[in-house]
Design a protein around this nucleic acid. Structure first.
Length: 499
RNA sequence: GGGCCGUUAGCUCAAUCGGUAGAGCAGAGGCCUUUUAAGCCUUUGGUUCAGGGUUCGAGUCCCUGACGGCUCACCA
């Protein structure tokens, strides 16, 4: 990489520092307080005594570190702000107090973006800002590349995503999003752990893929000379564990789907799945409501959030609609009046809707749901009782051959998760797999391999259970008010810019 | 993958009808001892994404490509 003029200027400064015997990248630093601790300690000291600490020698003494983010030199004295992982802190230095050499170094050889160590005593400026009046200043890391604009930050979306470090260092809002993301994951764990779930890890590299309808990424193990797939879901591995007598298991991890990228799709994304023996989908609905409300409360301090300008209440009982009711309401079609794909397709087209030639009955219904219903579901809503032919892992409704005990839930017009009373009848399951392989278009890559080991596991006996899957990225979008998934993924997928 | 839009200084953005490519911040030099995006004076910095074309003349119009944004499709 070549150096720009601005970088060459900084390299000259680096050279000057070294010529004066100053190491710009020392191995060790002195730090007695984080910036926030220095501010808090000073405030506590002020609160405890009546005497104002106007540069008094007895005020809090601190050695702090951080990146230089703003500078205001004023002749023989200067103000600056340094920022560490906790806060910004103003520092103040007088030439006569830090010494001529240090003061010259600060003015001539230190730049915005450099990391500094500063020592001194706290005081409050006449405008009231807690400030460290320093007597010592050291450079602890020289930045060669200048930081983005100090006021506007880094705006260019492509640069922000390709150089996430630059985004993070210049945009505190970005840092906040990913702090909250960590809190979301922590809160989910806490919630499930409190319900006696066991957290487990299952293979990312799978010899067969399944548990969802998506095309996989394919990779290869060299020594075994075996093709492997990056998992598209955890479902089949987690349910095997119920056969193994764990009653409640969950996993939070990465799924990989070789599909299109959009504001709510990234090729790799974080999924939560849990399975609980002896629960059914109604019980899972209740737990879902509680879990999402709990996470919202923990992360944002409220169950009421604002997303994309809309107020959304995540607490309490959510709206519940069957798929059939919802489609009747918004698409004005009762799909039970059209029991074949051909009839339903004609009805949709008569209404001016979109209905692909090769779509099955269930897929047409799913399409109606996506086109007419999903955008309407701003407040949290359970849609339940899905068509059987698009739900090969869900248990049939006892008195209804065309529907299964499945729900998806939607918030802010976005599908957030999917759950069912899991199918635990091994013979029914085998039929579904075979049927799916017969009806799905092999050419389109929709056909899924038949997982015989999973069927064998089921034959040992699987307890009735309720299962659940949710996109953690999407939940994070919701709780951080981000309108695209790439704003809640640190390194989202982008096309390579290599030439 | 389709459609539409975009890409100008390190960063944030201008540039009328096709007529000398600008500003702020950052940088450099100078002044300034309580500032708050400090201020004041001077000043450097451009293959206008790349490559073709039209034209006396292209940041601007046309074509191709790269990358990005939005959107549609895809995503049981």
């Amino acid at each position: 990489m070549e150096f720009s003029d601005l970088e060459l200027e900084r390299l000259k400064k680096l050279q000057r520092l070294r010529e004066r015997g100053i190491e710009p990248y020392p191995a060790r630093v002195t730090r007695t307080h984080t910036n926030q601790q220095a501010i808090d300690a000073f405030a506590a000291q002020e609160a405890a005594s009546d005497a104002p600490h106007q540069a008094g020698g007895e005020a809090v003494e601190a050695a702090v570190v951080g990146r230089l983010v703003l500078v205001r030199p004023m002749g023989k004295a200067s103000f600056a702000h340094i920022e560490d992982g906790t806060s910004r802190l103003q520092i103040y230095m007088k030439k006569e107090e830090v010494g001529e050499e240090t003061y010259e170094m600060f003015l001539k050889d230190i730049d915005l973006g450099d990391f500094l160590e500063a020592q001194g005593h706290m005081f409050r400026t006449k405008t009231g800002e807690p400030t460290l009046r320093i007597t010592q200043l050291h450079i602890i890391s020289k930045a060669i590349q200048p930081p983005p604009e100090k006021w506007h930050g880094l705006k260019d979306v492509e640069t922000r995503l390709r150089q996430r470090y630059a985004d993070l260092l210049s945009n505190p809002e970005t840092r906040e999003v990913f702090r909250k993301r960590a809190q979301v994951v922590n809160a989910l764990r806490r919630f499930l752990d409190n319900l006696d779930f066991l957290e487990v890890e299952t293979p990312v590299l799978q010899p067969l893929y399944g548990g969802a309808a998506a095309r996989p990424f394919i990779t290869h193990h060299n020594q075994l000379d075996q093709n492997l797939y990056l998992r598209i879901s955890f479902e089949l591995y987690l349910k095997r564990l119920l056969v193994g007598m764990y009653e409640r298991v969950y996993e939070i991890g990465r799924d990989f789907r070789n599909e299109g990228v959009s504001y709510k799709h990234n090729p790799e994304f974080t999924q939560l799945e849990f399975y609980a023996a002896y629960w059914d989908y109604k019980k899972v609905m209740e737990v879902t409501e509680q879990m999402v409300a709990y996470v919202a409360q923990e992360v944002t301090g409220s169950t009421q959030i604002e997303y994309d300008g809309k107020a959304i209440e995540l607490g309490g009982a959510w709206q519940r609609l069957t798929m059939r009711e919802a489609i009747k309401k918004w698409a004005e079609i009762d799909y039970m009046d059209y029991p074949t794909a051909a009839e339903l397709r004609a009805a949709i087209r008569a209404r001016g809707g979109h209905a692909p030639d090769d779509a099955s009955w269930g897929k047409l219904i799913d399409g109606l749901m996506g086109d007419y219903v999903e955008p309407q579901l701003i407040q949290p809503t359970f849609l339940y009782d899905y068509p059987r032919d698009i739900s090969p892992l869900a248990k049939r409704k006892p008195d209804d051959a065309r529907h299964v005990e499945r729900f998806e839930f939607f918030i802010a017009g976005m599908e957030m998760g999917n759950a069912f009373s899991e199918l635990n009848d091994p013979l029914d399951q085998e039929e579904r797999f075979v049927e799916m392989n017969r009806t799905e278009d092999v050419e389109a890559g929709d056909a899924h391999p038949l997982d015989e080991d999973y069927l064998r596991a089921m034959r040992y006996g699987m307890p009735p259970n309720g299962g659940f899957g949710m996109g953690v990225d999407r939940l994070t979008m919701l709780l951080t008010n981000q309108q695209t998934i790439r704003e809640v993924i640190l390194y989202p997928h982008l096309r390579s810019s290599e030439k």
